[in-house]
Amino acid sequence: MAGWVIKGARTGIRSSAYPAGPETAIGVSPGMPGDTAVDSPSDAEGLASLCPTGAMTAHDVSVVVDRGRCVHCFRCAQDARMPAVAWDPGFEWATYTDAYQALHAAFSRSLHIRFVDAGACGACMSEARQVNNPYYNMHRLGFFITPTPRNADILLVAGPVSDAMRDPLRKTYAAMPPPKRVVAIGACAISGGVFGPSYASAAGVKDIIPVDVIVPGCPPPPLAILHGLLLVAGRKPPAPRSSLAARADGRPE
């Protein structure tokens, strides 16, 4: 009966080293395009026009990627006629929105999460489920899934918010006691992605309830979601803004 204890002890810890150390396993993230400087404005225009979701905008001799729209289609990375975009192979993409306010330090090692699928295609849910498995094992970081919003600190939402999920999402948010934070995961939840806005769905969670942290990706890999949660907990910094992006919209890095 105690065989599993011995087996477990012999196996040792196999969970991801992240966030204490670097993640070295291959293929944990598809990566994402970064802001890139190019040679000419026409190159910039051409590169930006490749993007099917309008995630890229040309600014003079650079393209700036709105990661909240990118669906990792690789068109900007693999088109032979154009200069390649700078590809970021990591996963620490989560950032704050303007509305974000830091949580009390007491929450840094204990956060309860209520997950809502607001019309996601299924991939975001699949990835979100992975953070609960032994490899990513979010319990070791103090994150727990709770079935009722009454106990939740974080509302984790995927999907563009289809019309049918509009009220349930609102009700879930209203049912959470403050302080509460909303984490939108996936391009859909951030900007509507490939689905929204449309006659049947909104353009992301921010149309319905205030969003505090966004986790780009389509879907974001489990480590990206973990990064987003660590961000809310105040244990990781957000993804840095490039100087190109800062120059393009005139806001600081």
């Binding site: 809502v116 009722t148 919003p149 349930p168 999402l169 009700k171 209203a174 049912a175 006691p177």
Partner: peptide, 12 residues
């Protein structure tokens, strides 16, 4: 004390 509606599982 905040008074809200009873949690109904998000039903319409």
């Amino acid at each position: 004390t905040v008074r809200g509606r009873a949690w109904d599982g998000g039903l319409r």
